[in-house]
Amino acid sequence: MSARTATVPGMGMLRETGKLFALGLDIGRGIFQRPFQLREFIQQAWFIASVTILPTALVAIPFGAIISLQFGSLASQLGAESYTGAGSVLATVQQAAPLVTALLVAGAGGSAICADIGARTIREEIDAMEVLGVSAVQRLIVPRVLACMLVAVLLNGMVSVIGVLGGYFFNVVLQDGTPGAYLASFSALAQLPDLWVGELKALIFGFLAAVVAAYRGLHPPPGPKGVGDAVNQSVVITFLLLFVVNVVITLIYLQLVPPKLG
């Protein structure tokens, strides 16, 4: 992106990717360095939570409904109504919740982080901090990344609950499913690792969203439109990354954890 000197096509992208990884490693190291910026962490976690909770809740209800309705109708055509509960719960907890969470954390939280860091970069605040002998990664980025991860995990829990409740409501009230069958199939197919993998995904997605946002914020394209472009790119890049990583994690999970009904 900013490497206009690349002679071989794709070199620029490779270089950016490398730098992104390097920042990720720096952040990983920074997490274990003391002193930990507790205040910044709490402030940021509160801020990210405050901008994401409401939209996430509002998205979670229709999302649970869509999955439940779609699955319910599909299951009834196949004559497997009794598995509706299990199917929609699994889909919600494993796939829908982490993705919804990540999209909102990236869209609302990540863009705010990117704009904030980007503004500080072009005002030379980051340089000033480095020159004062304080690592900007440790001081500003690490608390934001951790805050994003925490909020993503908490939101994921919330989305799972709301999604499942919404699915239950729509299945039982609108599709004439029976509460008993819904709950029974739920415990027949779903298992605890399903929840764990959902949470793990949310954790990883939160990390990715924050690292990409911080990276674009630290290296905005030059010019007055730079920070705006950086925010835009950070959201797009995060979305792309999320779906790729999601495929990888899902594949690994399906290989490693045996399904409950063999």
């Binding site: 503004a119 500080r120 005002r123 030379e124 605040e125 340089d127 000033a128 901090m129 020159v131």
Partner: peptide, 13 residues
């Protein structure tokens, strides 16, 4: 060892 004055002051906003 350095004290640096940036072009626009670079204060923390």
């Amino acid at each position: 060892l350095f004290g640096v004055l940036f072009q626009d002051g670079a204060l923390f906003g």
